[in-house]
Design a binder for these strands. Structure first.
Length: 702
RNA sequence: GGGCGCAUAGCUCAACGGCAGAGCGACCGCCUUACACGCGGUAGGUUCUAGGUUCAAAUCCUAGUGCGCCCACCA
């Protein structure tokens, strides 16, 4: 009886040791796993950004992936869970810039090369913190295969992918109004915006008609852009303005003649039904401008200041200063009809929260039409299944209304666009989209397929079995991985896409680091242990439903650990030292009449028979539930069996009427079932009752 | 503006057409030799509201209220 059993279970005494044991065994690596293992089971980790540390949502994701991997490993699959991190372009550039700002340095002071060195330093430090956090929660990833989205091989792969599209004619350069962040100095995709309601105003401005004393009144939230107006537009069905279409107005301040045109996209019910058209600073206006062959006048530049086209009076002013100046001027000319309060959504950069300035700019685009079709078909046909199914809708809605993907970014940290004379980098999601196959060796592996006796990773593990992530990146990442996999490999990157619960704060708000509402899983692990943390997360995240964070379940997990610990202690007390071999596992025949092992049915009491039957059922149920990704249900079932059926009833019974063999084997089987969920404590106890194998690779079926 | 999700015990959540459950907390007994991170017991619910379908509704339908999320070019 080891003395450590004399105290309550203390995870700190065991977890690091156990993790080291697993790592040294080599069994995280599928190539080192014993046995035949014809079937494979693979997951590529959703690579966390190297921007900082993980939160409790990641921990849930990693705990559930680890349940699957450990379960399948014990079931005899050749299991690979491939880890890594993402360079996360703008996000990482931003945090490093912030860090430098504390020292009073900007990235421009350093210059591109020196700045990138700093980012690499950051990556080295924080990339490792993230991976260490994963180890703490017990993730059984194959660390020998760890990848980073900027590894040299990865850079080659991104180049290959880009050029593949380029040769197909799907990459083109276009000058368009894009979402421009005036702080980060880069374009952003629609998916990289966040909207925030602000108390704005709606200004009603009188535009004088040419050769007339009359006005047409337009409504706008952005009066400063009027300096770049090249038309006024109304709906063709709008009777109020029918006789004005085709006439001209004299644009105030600029004294420029601009036409009144009609366009069906104009909403009659908004404002006055007449709209100023500024093709250089609004996406809809740009389209209207293109359809009506209007010129585009850029009056705001990429740093958010007025250009010479805005007129001498305004040139060099910041956008908001210009707004005041323009309004003052209009006021003095008595051209403001009225001002309404108008709360509306303002687009902001999702990384730095600066207002987005729609701006005309030369960017690289990837044609999406064919790729979107591929992605739609893969899910429609059932090759890829969403869990829960309803998330498909988010995916289809986006793909069906897809716009070409602006893949260029004007930042420094990222994959360079592999064309001569272009110093832009690629959208970070362009490289993430290739993750499931580049991490398995594409494109090099794809070229060396023929004639090899040993299969390479891509052949062996692609398509992966399941991917799990938060609903927030269904389109940003999942959709793009799906069409990339289909385009480059000819097969979807995974079979199942599991959208897990989003963990909200107790009062239902999104967890956010900046708001200080995030919870660090490492704090929980320190306080309660990794198994308890895993237990709490899985226990609470029953289905795909959002959950309000609640630490009580982690408390329950800690208590459960102690319960298991003490049950093991009791069983060890009932078994004389040196009789480790008695902890065999029941065989199929043990559950059947006529079985002749000493655990056998015929030898057992009714209590023995009952617990063996309950064990058999529990094991079956748990296997079925894990395969359905119902981890919470599986854990509840297991908890009920271990605590109530085994400890409360059978253990008590065995105090009166001991069958040491049955007692020991039920403990052994319980540990196996517990292992995917609570790997540390189960492995620790296993070490005391069995000296042949480590539990991690014990056979589930037995 | 459109779409989706949620509303069940004090709190966090199960149950998805057939007697409403768990964890945490509360209360009352117990240091019963595995475990007080425990054991035994108790209290606590008109399942958001109003209708409807059904022999039967927390569960299905309709409308409403509240909360959360996503999408969208009403400037």
């Amino acid at each position: 009886m080891p003395s450590e059993f004399d105290k309550p279970y203390d995870p700190k005494e065991h977890e690091d040791k156990i993790y080291k044991l697993w790592e040294e065994s080599g069994f995280f690596n599928p190539d080192k796993l014993p046995g035949g293992r014809g079937k494979t089971f693979s997951i590529t980790l959703a690579p966390p950004n190297v921007t900082g540390s993980l939160h409790v949502g990641h921990a849930l994701e990693h705990a559930t992936s680890d349940v699957l991997i450990r379960f399948k490993r014990m079931q005899g699959y050749k299991t690979l869970w491939l880890p890594g991190t993402d360079h996360a372009g703008i996000a990482t550039q931003n945090v490093v810039e912030k860090e430098l700002k504390k020292q009073g340095i900007s990235r421009h002071d350093l210059g591109r090369e020196k700045f990138l060195e700093k980012v690499w330093e950051w990556k080295k430090k924080y990339g490792n913190i993230i991976l260490d956090q994963m180890k703490k929660i017990g993730a059984s990833c194959d660390w020998t295969r760890t990848r980073f989205t900027m590894d040299p091989e990865y850079q080659e792969a991104v180049k290959e992918a880009f050029l593949h599209y380029y040769k197909k004619g799907w990459i083109y350069q276009g000058e368009r109004v894009v979402n421009w962040c005036i702080k980060d100095q880069t374009s952003l995709s629609d998916l990289e915006l966040e909207y925030q309601e602000e108390k704005g105003k709606l200004w009603f401005i009188k535009y004088p008609l040419k050769n007339s004393k009359e006005f047409i009144i337009i409504a706008t939230t952005r009066p400063e852009t009027m300096l770049g107006d090249t038309a006024v537009a109304v709906n063709p069905k709008d009777k109020r303005y029918k006789n004005l279409v085709g006439k001209k107005v004299l644009l105030p301040i600029q004294n420029r003649e601009i036409p009144i045109i009609s366009d069906r996209r104009i909403e009659m019910n908004f404002g006055t039904g007449a709209v100023k058209v500024t093709p250089a600073h609004d996406m809809l206006d740009e389209q209207i401008g293109a359809d009506n062959k209007l010129p585009a006048l850029q009056v705001i530049n990429e740093i958010g200041k007025m250009t010479s086209a805005a007129g001498q009076k305004f040139e060099g002013m910041k956008m908001l200063e210009a707004r005041e100046a323009v309004l003052k001027e209009l006021e003095s000319q008595n051209l403001i009809e009225k001002i309404d309060d108008y709360p509306h959504n303002i687009a902001k950069c999702y990384r730095c929260e600066t207002h987005i300035e729609p701006l005309r700019s030369k960017q690289w685009f990837l044609k999406m039409e064919e790729l979107a079709k591929l992605a739609i078909k893969a899910v429609k046909s059932g090759k890829i299944k969403f869990h829960p199914k309803r998330w498909e809708k988010i995916y289809f809605d986006w793909l069906k209304n897809i716009k070409d993907w602006c893949v260029s970014r004007q930042i420094w940290w990222g994959h360079k666009i592999p064309l001569d004379g272009v110093d832009d980098v690629l959208d970070t999601w362009f490289s993430s989209a290739l993750w499931p196959f580049v991490t398995l060796g594409w494109p090099a592996s794809a070229k060396t397929l023929a004639g090899k006796s040993k299969k390479n990773d891509l052949e062996t593990f692609y398509p992966t079995d399941i991917l799990t992530n938060d609903r927030g990146i269904i389109n940003l990442w999942d959709a793009r991985m799906i069409f990339s996999g289909l385009e480059f490999i000819g097969a979807p990157p995974f079979k199942d896409l599991l959208i897990h619960a989003t963990i909200l704060t107790k009062d239902g708000k999104r967890m956010s680091k900046s708001l200080g509402t995030g919870i660090d899983p490492v704090d929980l692990i320190t306080k309660y242990g990794a198994d308890a943390t895993r237990f709490g997360l899985i226990w609470q995240a029953m289905g795909g439903q959002d959950i309000h964070w609640s630490e009580e379940h982690v408390v329950a997990g800690r208590k459960f650990c102690n319960k298991i610990w003490n049950a093991a202690r009791f069983v060890l007390q009932q078994t004389p030292p040196g009789k480790k071999s008695d902890f065999g596992t029941p065989k199929k025949s043990d559950f059947e009449e006529g079985g002749n092992s000493k655990l056998g049915f015929d030898y057992a009491s009714s209590a023995d028979k009952k617990i063996l039957a309950q064990l058999k059922k529990t094991k079956k149920d748990i296997g079925r539930l894990i395969d359905k990704y119902e981890f919470g249900q599986a854990l509840h079932t297991l908890y009920n069996f271990v605590w109530h059926d085994f400890c409360d009833i059978y253990l008590e019974e065995s105090k009166k009427n001991l069958n040491a063999e049955v007692l020991a084997s039920v403990l052994a089987e319980s540990l196996k079932m517990l292992h995917p969920f609570m790997p540390f404590i189960s492995e620790t106890i296993w070490g005391h009752i069995n000296n042949k194998n480590i539990l991690m690779i014990e056979s589930w079926a037995s």
